[in-house]
């Protein structure tokens, strides 16, 4: 029998937080991301290559999470907005104040293009029993984020394993 709170148990498999990105996909962030890892792929720097290979500029696939992370602040917001609210809901509901991500799997589908506005939905897949690691004692959870574009096309499925814990 599960020792999870009933509320958390009920979240498993539920599609939660269906949200739209706060801004259109744009090149400034693409250049910043490529610069941050010295990615010289001409697909992201050379218009001609982008036109030839992908019919115009696209974003590096690994940037997928950039396009739905909320602004640090925006007018009217009184609390910090976070990218994966479900992750923070789990920390609160399970009384585990610290958390890190341990695993990340991304499956890439339709490329993300300049001007796209992405949509996301979060799905809790599982929560483990208590485990102790070098960081502390807590639980692992697996969250999926499905990411689509404004045309209803699937762009990526991102799966995270998080570890929420109390420090040793």
């Amino acid at each position: 029998m599960s020792d999870l709170p009933a509320e958390v148990e009920s979240w498993i498999g539920q599609r939660r937080y269906e949200e739209n990105g706060e801004f259109d996909v744009e090149r400034g962030y693409i250049f910043t991301s490529c610069s941050s890892v010295q990615n010289g792929n001409p697909l992201y720097w050379d218009e001609e290559t982008a036109n030839e290979l992908t019919g115009g500029p696209i974003a590096p696939p690994s940037m997928i999470s950039v396009w739905f992370r909320p602004h640090y602040w925006s007018p009217g917001r009184t609390e910090e907005a976070v990218a994966m609210q479900l992750h923070f809901d789990l920390k609160a509901a399970l009384g585990l104040p610290e958390a890190v991500m341990t695993d990340n799997t991304i499956t890439f589908h339709e490329p993300v293009r300049i001007g796209d506005r992405l949509k996301t939905v979060q799905i809790l897949r599982s929560v483990s029993a208590f485990k102790t690691t070098k960081l502390g004692t807590g639980r692992f959870w697996v969250l999926d984020m499905e990411i689509g574009n404004q045309n209803g096309e699937l762009c990526a499925i991102e799966s995270y394993t998080g570890f929420g814990y109390n420090r040793s």
Binding site: N41, L53, P61, S62, T102, D103, N104, T107, F108
Partner: peptide, 12 residues
């Protein structure tokens, strides 16, 4: 540039 990522999976 013609290399197109299908999937990445990593453990930290």
């Amino acid at each position: 540039p013609k290399g197109r990522l299908g999937k990445i999976q990593f453990r930290m």
